[in-house]
Structures are given as structure tokens and as C-alpha cells.
Design a protein around this nucleic acid. Structure first.
Lengths: 340, 340
DNA sequence: TATTGATCTGCAATCGTTTGCAGATACATA
DNA sequence: TATGTATCTGCAAACGATTGCAGATCAATA
């Protein structure tokens, strides 16, 4: 009974060869004959050998690991993206170290340090709502490893990224509500420090403009899209003499909250108030009425992010230029926004 | 400009000391004077030194990493547990490598290999619905690292584990339905290969027995709890002459599906049919009627699992005995199961 | 002065792989 | 026999930290 783990050294003495040949045999190096490979593999099996990826990573400086930083894994959109990334990277033989920033820029910074310490070969990041200082992601701070942002990407910084077509999403939702006859369309958005909300807002404005509707600041709210904040915004909205006939909420939680508020205040949806959410998570079909929302195809985004980071890792040339990809969105119309 | 990463060797030559002193200074070893520590830290900062956790892990055989294997991160219960585990382990200075088995026992086995290769110091596992062969988790196969199971735990194998009080959950739900006057209570369960469903079934039987209701095999279904299977079971249930007056579904997806089925077939819930789910995920409050369910306190379970694995790692004695923890559950009664 | 003890520092081996280079072997050809 | 070529194998130095042990320094005490 060994208590020390079995190493390639042990295999080497077992089969009477050098460690280098064992190493090469196990990694299927072309200079090793097929019969030795078979012999070596058999010996490894017999001794209960376990590959030490740490030692290999140290020597070859290839950890075969990608760091992933997300705000929270519990958001349906995020968990779908993560799963796609993970599955895709597995096919490349890469692991993913998933970290949650919990919407804290400080923690996010610490996580970068942590991931660099374990020698990840690349970083995939969806940043917090409040990240302003992206300097930790500069090439110089990262020691040369590539980073790909998705969804929540830096506003004013050139970088590799993959994002949904947020402008179009905002535009489509608003246009749809306008087409349903709405003219007082509130917009409950996340903080503008976050790029996606800026673009949706632009889409919203564009559609209003096209329909000749004046943009009204009193109808627009920017805050984290939880229940409390959204209820406060609803209070604000409905205390005025002129009340909205539609709400475009920037996620489904907010849309659900608006519907909850409407229910409690005898406002009929979609009769008196039409509502749209965003992200098309699994709750929109359960709600009564079912909620119009925007599908973001998280699987495509995750897949794209994973492919992109692998391209960057594998490309030898140091790419000066930044790649920016956009995934399409699709407005899914449901009861909450349709004419009765 | 260095292109090679800065190592403690570089710091050593910068400040004119040996690498061992640098190593000790940086890790705050007591044998190093405070002033040298300050000097060393300053030099490290100046040179842009980055700790190489891989090298340290190799030398000290302490990777400071725990492997986590879950069926899917997208289940609300799971993502809550994962977050709790991760937060807790971070306070111990440990990272978590999260892997998804995707309900495949084969993949699960591969993931164990992968995690062992990267030298995790412990494993936390919630197994697939179909895992029968737990031998990969034997002490001998694991090379001495501890493993803690949670929620989906081995049925017939002694192990460290933390589970919800499933028997009581099954009992409480059933008793509640009986108290509402129901006597034909269907049970839509997951496959019995999975321990939790066995225990809930036992609780179900116990409550029936207490109320003098005969257990009826025709009312009980075992399958993965997705929409398709659940709809099929509903068809089965309602084609008989004697139809159920309640359904105890073993997760909230199934409960939602039952309610969907009832809606389509003019069965009023809770008037004609009372329904309970399990897990109390965020959809049960959105559904109309709101759904009775069982809160499992995933945060407590994750926290407990994390603490337990750390105890096992830190305890020097090789513990012969296995620790089994149970977290409490709470039945949350809502409209779907209450007398009208 | 010699001894002790406390405090700090350095040497060098080690963790388990990978890999550039050189050497060995075998066989065919000149 | 000598040479070339193709194929395989081994040596030994990395990778960047940790750590047991021994040694150095210096002040305090006998």
C-alpha cells in the first residue's frame, strides 16, 4: 500500500524507462512507439497513477483554466450563459473557475487577483453594475492574458466583447408598445453606469422619436431592478395626474413587480397598462398575464464568448485590434402588452 | 520592461536577500522582522510581483481549492446552495471549482478525475438522479481527500453528508393535504434511485397511514420531474374513474405543470384539486394560485456543507466515523392547497 | 571569557511534470 | 565498412514557490 501518490517516476521504474519517455508516452507524443505507449498506459493503470495537472501547469505555464467573473450565478440569464461557456470550453480541454462578484466592484478586483494567481490563461467577465474603473483589466495589469467581456461590458474602453443587440431590444419593445397605442411609456431601467441600459435607453428614445412622442424624464427611472426599488418607482409614476399607459421594464423581475403593483392598485394589465420585461426568463410564462419580454439567447452568447477567448489564447500574433460581437435578440409578444 | 513574470527570486536580488526570506516575509512568517517585511512588500509592489498559487500548491500540496459537482447550476435551489458554499469557503481562503454533471453519471465520474488531477483538497457533491455506482467516491479512489455529499446523497453508502429533512417534508405536505380534507392524494415523485425521493415517499406513506388512508400505487409516479413527464402522469391520473383530489409534486416545476394541466382541463385549483410543490423556488409566488411548497433553506445547507468539508480537511486524525447532518424544512402553505 | 538563548536569515532539496538537445539503435544504402 | 536516415529514448534543467535544518548575529547572563 502506497500512501505517497504515484508519479510518472514510479511508472518509469516499473517499466524501466526514463520519466521523459513516460511523460511523452502518456501525452501521446509521436516519437514514442505504439507498443511502449500501450505498455506505459498499462503500468500507469496498474499502479493507480493520477496525473498531476498542477505540476504540468507549472512547468508548461499552461493551466488549461479560464477564469469567469459574473455578478451572480442565480440570474437565469447568467446561469444559462455560464453553462454554455463551460460546455464549450470543456470541448477544448479547458476548465472554468467561476467567481461571483456579487455586484461589488471591490470584490471583482480581488477576484481578478485571485484568478491571476492561479494562472488562468484567460478571463471572461460580465462586470458589476457599478464597475467604473476597468484598469485592472488593462493588458498591462493582466500580464498578457486575454479578456473577453460579455453582456455587461465597459462603456468607454476598447476591449474584446460580445453583447446582445441592446439598442434594437430597447427599440423593438418601445415600438411595439407604441404600435399598441400607448403614448405615455414609462421606462424602468438599471443604472446608466452599465452599458446595456444606456443602449436600451437609446433604443427607447429612437422609437419614441420615430412616433413623434416627446421624451419625458419624469417617466424614466434608473436603479437596481429589485422589487423594492421598482415598487417605489411605481408609486412615483402613479401619483402624478397623467399616469403611464405602458411600462418598459429592463428585466423580468421588475416587470413582475409592476404587474404585482398594478394588481394591488386595481390597474388592469394589459387593459389600462401594458407591460414589457426583458430577458425572457422562465417566470414570464407563469405570470398572469404572461409577460412580453426580449429573448437574449444566452446560449449563443456564452458559446461566442468561449470561442472568442480560445481564439485569443491560441492566436500567436498579438492582436492589436479588438473584436466586438453582437448577438441578436427577439421580442416575444405576450398578453401583458397586447390590445384587449 | 519585463516580459517574464516577476518571481520572488527577482525580489530577492532587488532587496539583497535569499528567496527563502522573501517567501517567509510575504507569507507573514513570525521569524522575519517587521522592518524586512515592510521592505520586501515594498519591493514586491514596485516590481509588480504576482503570487504564483500553482507553484505554491505544488510544493506544499495545498491547492486551496475544493471541487464542487452539481447536476445543474440553473436550478434555483442549487444556485443558492452553491453561492453559500462559495461565500463560506472564501472566508477560509479556499476557491471552488464548480462543475456540472448535467445529470450524467458518466460525466460525473470524469469530473471527479478532472478535479483530482487539479489536486483539489476536498469534494462537495450533489449527485445525478441516476448515480448508482458511488465507488469513485470511495476513500481509496480519492487518494485520501474527503468528500461531503448534500441533498442528492448515496443511498446505501456510509458517507459524510448534509440533507434536508425529506421524510418530514413528505410527511408535512401529505398531512396538510389530508387535513384539508383530501383523501385521494397523488404523488408525483422523482426516480427512486435518488435518496431524497425515497424519504419523501416514506413521509407520504406515514401520513396516509396515520389518517387511515390506504396507499395506492396507481396514484404514485416516478420519473424526472420535467414538464413532459408530468403532463403524461396527469393524463394517466385523470383518465381513471376515481380522480385525485390532491397532488403532491416533488418539485415546483411539476407543481406548476399540474396547475397548467388543471387550467386546460377545467379542473379548479384549489377547489377541485389541491396542489403542493417542493423547494419553494421563486416561481411559486408568481403562479396563480400561489403554490404551497416546502422551503429547504439552501443557504443553511451550503453553509453546512462548506463548514463540514473544512472540518474534515483541517482535522488531522483520520476520522473513521461519518458525519450526517440534517437541515430542517418548513411547509409554506399557500392558496393552491387551502380550503376555499 | 564563555555560555546561553532569542531572533533572524540562508542553503538546498523538493513538489511532479515538460521539453530542448543529444545520444542510441536499427536498418537500408552506397 | 562506412554513411545516412529515421525512429526512438534519456539526461538534466527548468517552472516558482515552500520548508527543515543549520548557521549567523547579538545581547544578556553566569
Amino acid at each position: 500500500m502506497k500512501d505517497q501518490p504515484v508519479t510518472i517516476k514510479d511508472i518509469a521504474s516499473e517499466v524501466g524507462m526514463s520519466v521523459s519517455s513516460i511523460s511523452r508516452a502518456l501525452s501521446d507524443h509521436p516519437h514514442i512507439s505504439e507498443e511502449t505507449k500501450v505498455k506505459v498506459r498499462a503500468a500507469a493503470e496498474k499502479l493507480g497513477y493520477r496525473y498531476n495537472a498542477l505540476a504540468a501547469a507549472l512547468r508548461s505555464s499552461k493551466s488549461k483554466t479560464i477564469g469567469l467573473i459574473v455578478p451572480r450565478i442565480s440570474m437565469p440569464f447568467q446561469s444559462a450563459v455560464i453553462t454554455a461557456i463551460q460546455n464549450r470550453l470543456h470541448t477544448y480541454g479547458y476548465n472554468v473557475m467561476i467567481c461571483q462578484s456579487n455586484e461589488s466592484p471591490e470584490l471583482e478586483k480581488k477576484l481578478v487577483d485571485l484568478l491571476l494567481a492561479i494562472q488562468v490563461e484567460g478571463l471572461i467577465v460580465s462586470s458589476t453594475l457599478y464597475t467604473k474603473d476597468y484598469s485592472v483589466f488593462d493588458r498591462s495589469s493582466l500580464g498578457g492574458i486575454p479578456v473577453v467581456f460579455y453582456d455587461r461590458v465597459p462603456k468607454d474602453k476598447a476591449c474584446h466583447k460580445i453583447v446582445g443587440d441592446e439598442f434594437n431590444g430597447g427599440y423593438q419593445v418601445t415600438k411595439h408598445l407604441l404600435e399598441q397605442g400607448c403614448r405615455v411609456i414609462a421606462h424602468i431601467s438599471g443604472p446608466l453606469s452599465c452599458s446595456i441600459y444606456q443602449h436600451r435607453l437609446s433604443g427607447y428614445k429612437e422609437a419614441l422619436n420615430e412616433f413623434g412622442v416627446q421624451y419625458n424624464e419624469d417617466l424614466v427611472f434608473f436603479h437596481e431592478l429589485n422589487r423594492e426599488n421598482t415598487l417605489a418607482s411605481c408609486d412615483e409614476l402613479f401619483k402624478n395626474e397623467v399616469v403611464p399607459d405602458a411600462v418598459f421594464a429592463c428585466n423580468d423581475t421588475a416587470a413582475l413587480t409592476v404587474i404585482e403593483y398594478a394588481g394591488k392598485n386595481n390597474i388592469s394589465v394589459p387593459g389600462d397598462l401594458k407591460v414589457s420585461g426583458y430577458s425572457n426568463d422562465n417566470r414570464v410564462e407563469i405570470s398572469r398575464p404572461k409577460i412580453t419580454s426580449v429573448e437574449q439567447f444566452p446560449h449563443l452568447m456564452g458559446d461566442g464568448a468561449a470561442k472568442l477567448i480560445m481564439d485569443l489564447i491560441q492566436s500567436t500574433e498579438n492582436n492589436k485590434s479588438y473584436i466586438s460581437l453582437t448577438t441578436s435578440i427577439e421580442l416575444i409578444k405576450r398578453e401583458s402588452s397586447l390590445k384587449v
